[in-house]
Amino acid sequence: MPQAPAQQRNPQARTKDTFVSPIVESRRWLDGLTLPPDMPLLNLSQAAPADPPPDGLRRAISNAALSDDSSHLYGAVLGRDDLRAALADKMSRHYAADLSAADVAITSGCNQAFAATIAALCGEGDQVILPTPWYFNHKMWLDMQGVETCPLQVGEGMLPCPDAAAELITARTRAIVLVTPNNPCGVEYPGGLVQRFHDLARSHGLTLIVDETYRDFDSRTGPPHSMFQNPKWSDTLVHLYSFSKAYRLTGHRLGAIAAHPDHLLEIEKFLDTVTICPAQLGQTGALWGLQNLDDWLAGERQELLTRRAAIEAGFESLAKQGWRLLGCGAYFAYVAHPFAKRSETLAKRMVKEAGILMLPGSMFTPDDDPAGARQFRIAFANVDTDGIKTLFDRLKNWAA
């Protein structure tokens, strides 16, 4: 009896539709690297806290692990009710709005929040408008879902323009994505600008996805925008958040989505299929943080603002050599270099010759965008003001 032909392996699997993560790629540059003792590595590549959470939060997780049996079992797909309620309360105070637990879902990291949102909004061949320079994981996920990314070039001040976005809208457009404070550029989008994007999305029946992972480190006081104050905000807005940066919970993978309850029902299908529920112990830590760490988080914010000021003040020495500071805020500075060589070539040399690891702008832009070859992202969350001074000293003395 003849055998059925063996199944052919798909030569173009979804993961082959996108690029290697810049974080993974840049770590490869460190393989076999040996630096002089007087030039330790300055790692400015990744925007993540390097220190563990405060002791009180760690004790809350430890106690739950030992005494709360439910922390080791499956939980609700959209997260614990008490955490959803606490986050809704925090958001209501932050945005001077009125959110409820039914408007909020907990996810396994903010990347998953974005992935779940896209899965609930888009099908094969749909389009999403993404400002560039973009957060690379957003682009990677759209690639892997067969969703076309429509790059929206930023303008003056590294800010996207709603009028330019309007010109990109087609019958296949499903959403516009904003990140504020921005990754990779650091800039804080003015509330009026965000509102204009909201109005644009609403007028075309689109969803506005706003990722505010770094909202706790915004330099402004008061609500950064007024969208949540509109009783019909969830007709248009999907809001993403991360506990990782605020409470140093990166290893516990906790993010959140605020959206219309009907939209969360669709998102629940994705979450139930992928992770079933967010990690229980991480949720315990996030809840304790929301309830107890407001003052501590205010201190963390002030430290990041101090580092931002050090970047802005110290950049003058580089400006004299032709560098330009394009954006700065939250965890990031985004800069243009003065050299003839491309940023990806310079980045690899800089690791070996100056002990500096930072990501080239080409990792945040389309392949055909020449701007990326002239730019770098500096992630300064893990270097103090002394480290920032060291960065500028090394760059001043480095000849490309």
Rank of each mutant, 00 (worst) to 15 (best):
A4V: 13
Q8R: 15
D17V: 05
V20M: 08
E25I: 03
D31G: 04
P49N: 08
L57R: 02
L57A: 02
R58A: 12
A65N: 12
S67F: 13
S71R: 08
Y74G: 13
G79V: 07
D81L: 12
R93D: 14
L99I: 08
C110H: 05
A120R: 01
C122M: 04
D126Q: 05
L130G: 00
W141L: 12
L142E: 00
Q145I: 01
G146R: 09
Q153T: 11
G155Q: 09
C161Q: 03
A164V: 06
A166W: 00
I169D: 00
T170C: 05
T170M: 03
R174C: 01
P181M: 09
G186I: 02
V187Y: 03
E188C: 10
E188G: 05
L200N: 00
H204R: 13
T207Q: 11
D211I: 02
E212H: 05
N230L: 06
N230R: 06
N230H: 10
S234C: 13
H239N: 06
P261S: 08
H263R: 14
L265F: 06
T275C: 12
T275S: 13
C277A: 15
W288Y: 15
W288V: 04
G289T: 12
L293W: 06
T306F: 06
R307K: 15
Q321K: 14
L326A: 07
C328V: 14
R342W: 05
K348F: 04
K352E: 09
G355M: 07
I356H: 04
L359M: 14
L359Y: 02
F364Q: 02
A371K: 11
Q375S: 13
A381N: 06
N382G: 09
N382D: 13
V383I: 15
A400D: 15
